[in-house]
Design a protein around this nucleic acid. Structure first.
Length: 828
DNA sequence: GCAAGGTC
């Protein structure tokens, strides 16, 4: 039997399909897919199936000195037992084994792991095949000419594993122990995460140190032939054009001059056409950036893309490649979109003579750029996010084979006495790729047609005082680009690293802002282990890995030298242990510090109750028991803005799209204490028995609700929006005999209606959203389920498929059972 | 429980 081992299931399936001319069938063995055709079996790993770790005796953080990890031996352990067992069983029956993992360094190491697992059961030939993308020709050619595994290249990957583990674990434990942070909230350090964090912290320091400078800009409205346009004053500054004036006196003088003038003479008109080339194919970084401008975080964008990939609608989303492989036939792929939701774009493109795809700078050997496959999803089989991302990938592909756009640029300069004004206009001449790719701006700036020498009227002039701005914080996609530029992380890990910084409490908000903890950790690491907080370590590691791969250095020599360096770091850390610990602890406190306690003058801090909810409490506890509540949604973060009345810093609740500023918690509590409940009707729960009434209430946490006046004896309540004035309107709901509520927040009043009806509708929509998250359930089906009384995934899970199928048209009991299974899998 | 790298 011939055994083929790939890096992932998806690759196994496709390779089996190609080599068997579509005849392969799948079996499951210990929950692992094994593809079979003739005498061949193909099995996919799941990336690394063995992991590197310290032996058990190093497990306890308190009992082991971190420095002991520096020279500790390492052991490998199986991390995917089912796959390892399947592989071993297949190897036992094989008489030929081919390793077909990805064609890159990490793939070679994964291949070596498979090699060792196979070798334990089998002593025949084990060979390696390499192909740059899983396409018919490439795969066939690779299998016709197998090679040997490159153990040097795999050893280069092992060097990375060892060095990352030893440095990361030893320093993470050291900082966590010195700061007294053990358990879930440890203080982590790593070769990739720490330099990334330093990027964010350094930028924040620049922003803080920034000293804004005033400057002035001048504008004038010019008109001629019944048309008017805006022009800006400019002057010559040592041979280059400048618009900003740095002296207020000079700005006033120019303004007076322009104000006094009535006429401007057009001194030049310059027309140029500009070619606007279509974008390069998507690699992971460019994809994340494009999805980012649609509002997706890096992590969200990748999760959706991975889902689309697993379903077979797009190619592998983790790639650095920006050049389509030779055997991608662009015309055939465009043709596949005829008659689809992208028919217009596809037909337009197929009317061209040639479809010549763009290329980016990077051509790699493991995966093609991200593009759609010829398998098209039905709109209703995807949820809104999936469809939006799918459409982005499709349109990006279509854009790469479309024509360039053409712009007409027009520049007009005019003279007013000795002063000069300019205006720039642009018009889209040829839409080109913008026809199929609506994500980049095509907004035009129109200027009227004016001729050189023409006289225009000066309608009005304007002086604007401005200030220079500090550098901007890195957004997530910008951060990923910076990481890529510096060689930090890989296409598969960069977005996870950013997510990790959030999880560790190093950054919050979007764009990510560093916490005081992050600054303290970067400070401490810069002082004692500079290598790990700069990209220098990655650079040196790359060089060492290249040397190992080229056979010029030994794995053990490289890791020994690295351990030696780490030992020196620990030498210098030893005497500063207490100082570092105090600094980190202080930073942790300052991240939560609001201001003085009104009762005892000690510090008020954001704290967390044993139940996990946040509140404001005094550092003097238990001597001082002063507390203030916080809203019950989101994670609190302390802002720099401060309440003048109470000297407490404002609090913001971070909760994705539902993020809001809570403000001063003392003010919120005071406002609630001063507000009166407004009775609007009878409590539906206890009104008839105990005379409970429903009232609009404001809680000390800032939340508002419609609740029973007999609280806490009756806990009936309905949520109300946090912001805006609530008006009680005249018409009453017939069903519930309650008034309709109107929320005034901003310009448009929001008619909330009867609070019971409105909450019921909110619950229904929420239920539909949740049901749609189950694989295989589209928007329509979710609505049907909801109409049949399924209010949540739990309801679906406990429903009897036969009964429910009888109530919903077009949904069989079998499909319901399928979804129940899916649900069980998704919720684990 | 530590890292970073695969993959889901």
């Amino acid at each position: 039997m011939k055994l083929i081992v790939t890096e992932k299931n998806n690759a196994a399936e496709r390779i089996a399909d190609i080599l068997s001319n579509g005849a392969a069938t799948a079996d499951r063995r210990h929950g692992v897919n094994v593809y079979r055709f003739g005498d061949t079996r193909v099995v996919g790993l799941s990336g690394h199936v063995v992991g590197l770790d310290f032996p058990d005796e190093y497990e306890n953080w308190r009992d082991v000195e971190p420095v002991e990890l520096v020279d500790a031996g390492l052991v490998t352990e199986h991390t995917q037992e089912n796959i390892v067992r399947t592989l071993a069983e297949l190897a036992g029956r094989a008489d030929e084994v081919l390793i077909a993992t990805d064609y890159d360094r990490e793939g070679e190491l994964i291949g070596k792991e498979a090699h060792e697992l196979v070798r334990a059961e089998f002593d025949g030939p084990i060979q390696r095949v390499r192909f740059s993308s899983i396409t018919d020709t490439e795969v066939r050619e690779a299998f016709a000419d197998p090679d040997d595994l490159d153990f040097d290249l795999a050893a280069a990957g092992q060097a990375r594993q060892v060095i990352d583990l030893v440095w990361g674990a030893a320093l993470t434990r050291f900082l966590s122990l010195t700061a007294g942070r053990l358990g879930e909230e440890f203080v982590s350090v790593g070769r990739v995460q720490s330099p990334t964090l330093k990027l964010i912290v350094d930028r924040e320091r620049e922003i803080r140190a920034f000293d804004p400078e005033s400057y002035w800009e001048l504008f004038a409205t010019l008109s001629g032939n019944g048309d008017s346009f805006e022009a800006q004053f400019f002057y010559d500054d040592n041979g280059s054009e400048a618009e900003r004036l740095w002296s207020g006196g000079r700005a006033d003088a120019v303004h007076e001059g322009l104000d006094a003038a009535t006429e401007a003479r057009v001194s030049s008109v310059r027309r140029r056409t500009r070619t606007d080339n279509p974008p390069a194919p998507f690699d992971t970084t460019a994809f994340i950036a494009a999805a980012g401008s649609l509002g997706y975080s890096a992590q969200q964008a990748m999760s959706v893309a991975e889902e689309l990939y697993t379903e077979g609608y797009i190619t592998y989303p983790r790639t650095d490649n920006t050049v389509y492989p030779d055997d991608l036939d662009p015309a055939a792929l465009v043709e596949a979109f005829r008659g689809s939701a992208f028919d217009d774009a596809a037909s337009y493109l197929l009317d061209r003579d040639t479809l010549d795809p763009t290329e980016g700078d990077e051509e790699t050997t493991d995966h093609p750029p991200i593009h759609p496959t010829t398998e098209l999803p039905a709109r209703r089989s995807l949820d809104d996010d999936e469809w939006e991302i799918y459409e982005l990938v499709v349109r990006r592909f279509l854009a790469t084979v479309a024509d360039p756009a053409e712009w007409a640029h027009l520049r007009v300069t005019a003279a007013v006495d000795d002063y000069r004004l300019k205006a720039n206009g642009k018009r889209l001449l040829e839409r080109g790729y913008h026809r199929v790719y609506p994500y980049t701006s095509t907004s035009e700036t129109r200027l009227p047609a004016v001729e050189e020498g023409e006289t225009l009227a000066v309608e009005e002039s304007r002086l604007e005082q401005k200030e220079t701005q500090p550098p901007r914080r890195y957004g997530q996609s910008r951060l990923i680009k910076e990481m890529e530029k510096r060689g930090l992380g890989t296409k598969s890990t960069r977005h996870n690293v950013i997510e990790k910084l959030y999880d560790r409490g190093y950054v919050s908000g979007d764009p990510p802002r560093p916490t005081a903890l992050a600054e303290a950790v970067v400070d401490a690491t810069e002082a004692y282990a500079e290598q790990v907080v700069t990209e220098e370590m990655t650079g040196e590691l790359e060089a060492d890995m290249d040397a190992i791969a080229a056979g010029e250095a030994e794995l053990s020599t490289v890791t020994e030298a690295s351990r030696e360096m780490l030992a020196e770091v620990f030498e210098s850390l030893r005497s500063s242990r207490e100082e570092i610990g105090e600094q980190i602890q202080e930073s942790l406190k300052s991240d939560r510090l609001l201001g003085p306690c009104p009762e005892c003058g000690d510090d008020l801090l954001v704290r967390r109750s044993q139940q996990g909810s946040f509140f404001v409490g005094c550092d003097g506890y238990p001597d001082c028991e002063y507390t203030l509540p916080l809203p019950n949604s989101g994670e609190p973060t302390v802002l720099s803005a401060c309440c003048e009345e109470h000297d407490l810093q404002h609090v913001k609740m971070l909760d994705g799209r539902n993020t809001f500023v809570h403000g001063c918690p003392q003010c919120a509590a005071d406002a609630a204490d001063e507000s009166n409940d407004r009775v609007i009707g009878i409590c539906p729960e206890c009104g008839t028995d105990h005379g409970g009434e429903l009232a609009i209430k404001t809680l000390r946490s800032g939340s508002r609700l419609v609740g029973c006046t007999r609280y806490p004896d009756c806990e009936y309540s309905l949520p109300l929006p946090r912001r805006g004035d609530i008006e009680i309107d005249d018409p009453r709901c017939e069903e519930h005999d309650l008034p309709e509520l109107v929320v005034h927040d901003g310009d448009d009043p929001w008619e909330l209606g009867c609070p019971i009806c409105s909450y019921r509708e909110f619950r229904r929509e929420h239920a539909i959203d949740e049901l749609e998250d189950i694989d295989g359930i589209g928007g329509r089906t979710a609505e049907k389920l909801s109409a049949a009384g399924i209010d949540s995934p739990t309801d679906l899970d406990t429903a009897d498929p036969e009964t429910l199928a009888g109530e919903i048209q077009g949904v069989s009991a079998d499909r319901l059972r399928e979804w129940q299974g899916e649900l069980a899998e998704q919720t684990g």
